[in-house]
Design a protein around this nucleic acid. Structure first.
Length: 257
DNA sequence: GTGACTGCTACCTTGGTTAA
DNA sequence: TTAACCAAGGTAGCAGTCAC
């Protein structure tokens, strides 16, 4: 199948972490910073890493990493090998470090792959892990493409998108987002719609719905609790938005999944 | 003149409440 | 779970200001 997964998991550091490999990478490394900061040195270059930064280490690259002490740093990482992986890594336009949007679907897929890898019989039935990894890599490439094409997007719009992503799970006002960008509400709304094609509220709803679907699939929380934790003001409103988006009520959706 | 931005306002959407 | 109602908030369009 051209895919050999050596390790998939995540790490959390608070007391600082240092890793300096004396030998070049023996496999390909995909590392996503989901919280905090780090510094990566690769092939003589130093990359300051912050939330959302994706590092793609090629087989044979020199690699070392530092995370600061006293500060939370969390990352998801995969060591893998194989012809399919090599081909994926050597497609044109793939950067060493690139900031991508921390999409909940992406992180959920990554977690799913890590859980699958830890199963005692994972080595006997590798198909699912391979498909999960391939799906994950396709999503990563899409994220890189999205952000690359989004380079024409003004920094201020990207900043508003990040603010919405941070605030989506709570109640927030467009005024807060506009303030974070130093613009009036009117100007912020115009700019956002012009460069993303959707309103700030639409963007926040999209994030909230993704979070809600994940919680419905992987937790036993009540729909009311999910609605609340995902930033929907009330269950009634969540129900209406959900049905409008998916064509069925949250309850029906949960039963079917 | 042009582009970036603000402020105003009508209209639309969102989200809470209530009832069935 | 759904529908109706309504107030609050958001969006879009336009005119005006300012700097270059």
């Amino acid at each position: 199948m051209g895919v050999n997964i050596r390790f998939s998991g995540y790490a959390h550091h608070r007391k600082g972490y240092h890793e300096d490999r004396k030998t070049p990478l023996l496999q390909y490394l995909v590392r996503l910073q989901v919280e905090g900061h780090a510094t990566i040195r690769s092939n003589g270059k130093t990359y300051p890493i912050s939330q959302g930064d994706l590092y793609l280490g090629r087989k044979g690259d020199h690699y070392s990493i530092d995370t600061p002490a006293g500060q939370d740093s969390t990352d998801y990482h995969i060591f893998c090998d194989g012809s399919w992986v090599a081909e994926w890594f050597h497609q044109p336009g793939l950067p060493v470090v690139h900031n991508i949007r921390l999409d909940d679907k992406l992180l959920s897929l990554w977690r799913h792959l890590s859980i699958e890898q830890r199963r005692p019989d994972a080595g006997e039935t590798p198909e699912l892990s391979v498909y999960l990894l391939k799906a994950l890599f396709v999503m990563l490439k899409q994220s890189v493409n999205d952000e690359t094409s989004g380079n024409e997007r003004p920094f201020i719009v990207t900043k508003m998108m990040r603010t919405i992503e941070e605030l989506a799970a709570s109640k927030f006002q467009v005024e807060d987002v506009a303030a974070s960008a130093g613009l009036s509400v009117s100007r912020a709304s115009h700019l956002f719609k012009e460069h993303t094609g959707q309103s700030m509220i639409d963007y926040a709803q999209e994030i909230r719905l993704n979070m809600a679907v994940n919680q419905m699939q992987y937790t036993s929380m009540t729909l009311e609790h999910i609605a609340e934790s995902c930033g929907f003001g009330s269950y009634v409103y969540f129900h209406r938005i959900f049905k409008h988006h998916y064509g069925k009520s949250p309850g029906q959706f949960r039963k079917m999944n």
